[in-house]
Design a protein around this nucleic acid. Sequence first.
DNA 1: GATCATGATGTAAACGTTTACATCGCTTCG
DNA 2: CGAAGCGATGTAAACGTTTACATCATGATC
Lengths: 360, 360
Amino acid sequence: MGAGVTVKDVAKAAGVSVASVSRALNGHKNMAEETRVRILKCAERMRYMPNDAARSLITRRTHTIGTILPDLHGEFFSELIRGIDLAARARGLHLLVSSSHGDAGEAAAALRSMQGRVDGLLIMSPHADPVLLRANLPDSLPAVLMNASAGQSRYPTLSIDNYGGALAMTRHLIACGHRRIAFIAGPAGNLDGDERLRGYQDGLAHAGLTHEATVFAGEFTEESGHAAGQELFRCTPRPDAVFAANDMMAIGCLFALRERDLAIPTDIAVVGFDDIPIARYVTPPLTTVRVRIADLGRSALTRLVAEMEAPGASPESSQVLPCEVVVRTSCGQCFGPHNRSKSSNRFPIAVPINMPGRET
Amino acid sequence: MGAGVTVKDVAKAAGVSVASVSRALNGHKNMAEETRVRILKCAERMRYMPNDAARSLITRRTHTIGTILPDLHGEFFSELIRGIDLAARARGLHLLVSSSHGDAGEAAAALRSMQGRVDGLLIMSPHADPVLLRANLPDSLPAVLMNASAGQSRYPTLSIDNYGGALAMTRHLIACGHRRIAFIAGPAGNLDGDERLRGYQDGLAHAGLTHEATVFAGEFTEESGHAAGQELFRCTPRPDAVFAANDMMAIGCLFALRERDLAIPTDIAVVGFDDIPIARYVTPPLTTVRVRIADLGRSALTRLVAEMEAPGASPESSQVLPCEVVVRTSCGQCFGPHNRSKSSNRFPIAVPINMPGRET
DNA sequence: GATCATGATGTAAACGTTTACATCGCTTCG
DNA sequence: CGAAGCGATGTAAACGTTTACATCATGATC
């Protein structure tokens, strides 16, 4: 008992037809109350559980949404999935996750294998270009892209305001009195990294500091940040601030500078991007740009559900989520407009750039 | 085109029967090579993608495993899912996640909704007692429990060696010369917390230090650790070491002690449990017990697959995963047997307790 | 009392696959 | 030449649901 109990079995036990069982289970209207409870009782007693595969086949609804992710490592994806799950759960949707697609072939296989298992797809993948999607996704399957290069796809796209965040952070550093601001870049070709670099460059340009720009190569890893930190000593004059394209590199850099006995932020300021949990616990606490990752996930799912309910209805297909500068102590004394009060180490002040996203 | 293309359509286009299409697609043996390629070409051209719901219905295989988790917050579940995903991917299995089951009813609903969608289940839930499982799971569905109170269920169970880890850490502290060792406990009734407490108590007992035991209440949160750290000043004589039941509390405690200008580890040692990523970045780097979370996930999945392939075959149904003490600097000078060399801040020495799990 | 609307229930088709079995044509061998 | 064997292919049933439609009893209406 348990497995293998079908509507048929329940029908026989209750002395009715399968149709009645189905109706009772799905709470249809035209039923004698007496029959309904009898059927329900039988189902309960027999530990009947509907087979969702069969149900999906006929209703063409799986109540499941799929997520295609490049990786599952680290706080970023953890948060992203959490945001998605939260929103999905609220709507009674299941979550099918697929990750670690090293190459386009794997990504394609992942896309195809979702066929018939999901009602919609949330996609974040470096390989998710329009042609791959076209070839491996039925036209009728709703999907939302996350963090892709926006605008070029027929799918709605959500992304982080990397440019705006980096611009704001650069301005903040300038407002703190820093002039020779170096940047540690992300891996070549990485879209997020490139946008952050652009924000940094424009921030300097707006202040007439283009000639001060110094860019170190980086790979988004702690090690590459550490290397950049050592590299930095070759510069004369030495920069008075370093802006890393993500927090892990900022932390690596921080350690490299401390190994050479530089005081942070007195001798040199260090700031990052992402606001991973670790950021507030290092010494000194890291000033950074907060990205509301869970919000990205939640928004993407919300957008997807809209698409599922009314395909192609929503006009604005592309959306950019705001970031915010989080001032802690690693950026030094602040005299800029953002500096409302001395910020606590452990309970940082969040400075909204645009409209802040809702808190999780 | 794309969606709605069925075997029937492909069959018509290729001028064969649906059976042949199915055979071609699934690579069966008895087929004329010429027919096969013609069918495959047609399928490709029409962008045919099999409907997995229909396939599952007839084959009774979903190639999907479900995970029931209490929550998705934080590094712990991120790592757990990663470990599971890694192992699942290697076997071509999909992952259906379900989380945040506040009460038994939600957990029950989650279990039932997995019916017909998964080939097996990985369950970690405080509500997953035998009777709930019995009522909501078909007898034939393989499942593996993670971190539950072992032994009382008919399902295989995997858990962390909380007791052994805490015991080893307590011994390590004693070996470092500490005597008045306080403990910050987990939330009341939490199984992991209770086991860690027991390990601490036995560790003291073995050294004849039972009279020195001091236990503070905690909730596994940074705040509760902070509170315990303040509480600690009331003790006379003051403890010379604090062992928190998890890292977040250890960190909260660390900050509380520093706020009162105690030097760590000179004035007082602080150690934790879990080895979350933050642990190595705080100042001073935290000595802690490493739990191989991803390994837990991977092992659980491996065990589940074994169960799926040969139900009830494996004799040993319960398994405990080892932990290891990670010596950094927050525990002070070590003269114990574990101390092979002065450990680096950022590249800690791992000290195996039993047999260390494989590295990810 | 015949007609009709109404509400409860049953019958059977449909969803898109896989696969056991039947069929057919060919080769091979006696 | 006919039987047997075999390989390629087609036919149809099965998986467990949902649901359009048919049926049937009941009571109301004229």
